[in-house]
Design a protein around this nucleic acid. Structure first.
Lengths: 360, 360
DNA sequence: TTGAAAGCGCTAACAG
DNA sequence: CTGTTAGCGCTTTCAA
């Protein structure tokens, strides 16, 4: 009881201990304190000992802000993401955050809740913090003005020795210092649609998504290309890009099957939508995959939990995050394996139980 | 093309602009620049104009680290959480992060992946950053040594004008400067069990969780108290606290129903476990709620997506996060509505379709 | 309304 | 091996 340590006894807003305090307590100079703390310079064992004792006695914690002032980096990464709860973003952020900690850094994570303009504003706030890099996950829009702003921020960051990395983000298509780590969105959509066609389907609908989102555009592109490559007519009425969420998947599917009972397969734009599709089909008395086949995109845990288990496109979410961090901190040359526009990770189809041949 | 701005033209690691640069460009002193930027001091309109022009010309972004050195706060909150992808933590972090942004701050978010010891280490790293407060979400353990360390950190933070807030965390039960925001864990478990009993159930099993986690301990306490209060014998063999995850819920339930076919109701320790219970029951040819009733805890979106929709205990996750942030930044007196140990938010039962009277 | 100068806590020459 | 000192970029008295 009587040995309560110094800093716990003195309650209230006292000034935290500084190098000088430690130096005084250990009877050395501040330079010596700095040296033992950073361990990057020879110091006599006895001295070191004395300093360490003082450090723990005073509960000293070096002021990272002061340190940042003299160093070129801050050991901080900025991460901007639309939403944290959604597993699509969640897994990417997980990969990102873990890699950040492994690199000895800490992550400032900020969400935009899809607010337009929020990304740019947050990049600026992170630039003030002098983060080693800022990583913008997905989101964004195809608006040219927005892309121009992003490119401008990329250059501003580069000018101060930092970096902008786009993760699972539509390409900027603009000369800029931004790096980018993406996945093969269009290709995944192509192969999953192709898979349906190979199974004999011709009347294939596409459900879910927001038409202004670049990612969705790419998924549709892949779908269309697959259809076209097999000479199947495009029926625009089978494309129901009417929003996100399970409910939307449900409603769109109910309407779709009512109007087009000849549809034998549905490509849900992501796993969540697919679960709505499942419900709608069930309520309409249609069995999966006997009556209608269903495929989706993302391969979140949900896919394996649906019944029948969902055939879906696997996106290497966590890996995307890891690679984005590498792109953020790697030396320029180490990253040179990705010449210009950046790295693109492959996607692949995970075959499960939601696809069969169409009923006759 | 020719009007490329200054900072975009000069590529490479140039030193970012400073107040002095701006001052020089605007022909004023650094003090004046600081004053217009902070807007907390009268400055002639013309001067202000000149400064602002220089700011945008140079692409100046104030160095937050330097600023932190002269200010008492850093506009940064530290958040430590076991995992981001899990919706239980996800929603809390969402509430936390949003409230943080609304308060004009940015959040450093770090995950522990349940690594023992990681929390303490991360608190220390955040203390170096001089965060305005660090919020530890859930996790933890009932280990006394750990609790002592936490209490010590709480005091160390308080000593430097910061603060430690425990969110949905077991109580420290130790005198310390830590604040705490929790939910009525035991009460929720009590009422959901009580609900089952009121419906006529006597053979009520409990499935899922890790016995060393304090939260699970409290959920079991509520369950036991409800049983005891109605004079129902406790059968330890109906308590299957064998781990987390859907798979565990499945396996435990299969074994349970095999050994105790007289069980008519199952209390799953959370929604995820419940989905495993659902599957197991289904595979065993048992219908919900006709043959066996199921209830759970958390009320994540999953609950409403299961069929039949799951009756579960609602936990105000996002609100918990918001309140934790309030506790983190509120003036001492404003927070005084929570006298000592902190705030406890209520839980309540959400009645859906997974409970019925037991079969005869 | 503006400027000069001190100082926040730390690190990195540069001397000894 | 250790100490002195000069900043890093900003805010803030104190004067003008």
């Amino acid at each position: 009881m009587s040995s309560t340590s110094e800093q716990t006894r003195v309650r209230g807003l006292r000034r935290p201990a500084t190098v000088s305090d430690v130096a005084a307590a250990a009877q050395v100079s501040t330079a010596t304190v700095s040296r033992v703390l950073n361990g990057n310079y020879p110091v006599a064992a006895a001295t070191r000992e004395r300093v360490m004792r003082a450090v723990s006695k005073l509960g000293y914690a070096a002021n990272a802000n002061a340190r940042a002032l003299t160093q070129s980096d801050t050991k901080t990464i900025g991460i901007i993401v639309p939403e944290l709860v959604d597993p699509f973003f969640g897994y990417m952020v997980r990969g990102l955050e873990r890699a950040t900690q492994e690199s000895g850094r800490l992550a400032i994570i900020a969400t935009t809740s899809f607010r337009p303009g929020a990304e740019i504003a947050l990049i600026d706030r992170m630039r003030e913090r002098r983060v080693d890099a800022v990583i913008v996950v997905s989101g964004g829009s195809s608006d040219p003005a927005y892309r121009r702003q992003l490119a401008q921020r990329a250059d501003a960051l580069a000018a101060m020795g930092s970096r902008l990395v786009l993760c699972a983000h539509p390409t900027l298509d603009l000369p800029s210092a931004a790096r980018s780590v993406a996945y093969d969105t269009e290709g995944g959509a192509f192969s999953v649609t192709e898979h349906l066609i190979a199974n004999g389907h011709r009347r294939i609908a596409m459900v879910g998504g927001e038409s202004h989102l670049p990612t969705i555009g790419l998924r549709r592109d892949g779908y269309l290309r697959a259809l076209a490559s097999r000479g199947i007519d495009i029926d625009e009425d089978l494309i129901r890009i009417e929003g996100f969420g399970r409910d939307v998947g449900y409603a769109s599917t109910r309407a779709l099957m009512e109007e087009h009972p000849d549809v034998t397969a549905i490509f849900a734009v992501n796993d969540t939508i697919a679960s709505g599709v499942y419900d709608a089909l069930g309520d309409a008395g249609l069995r999966i995959p006997t009556d209608v086949s269903v495929v989706a995109y993302d391969d979140t845990p949900l896919a394996a939990n649906l019944s029948p288990k969902l055939t879906t496109v696997h996106v290497p979410l966590e890996q995307l995050g890891q690679e984005a961090l590498r792109a953020a901190i790697d030396e320029p040359d180490a990253f040179s394996r990705t010449p210009e526009q950046g790295l693109t990770l492959g996607t692949y189809l995970v075959h499960r139980d939601s696809v069969a041949m169409p009923p006759r």
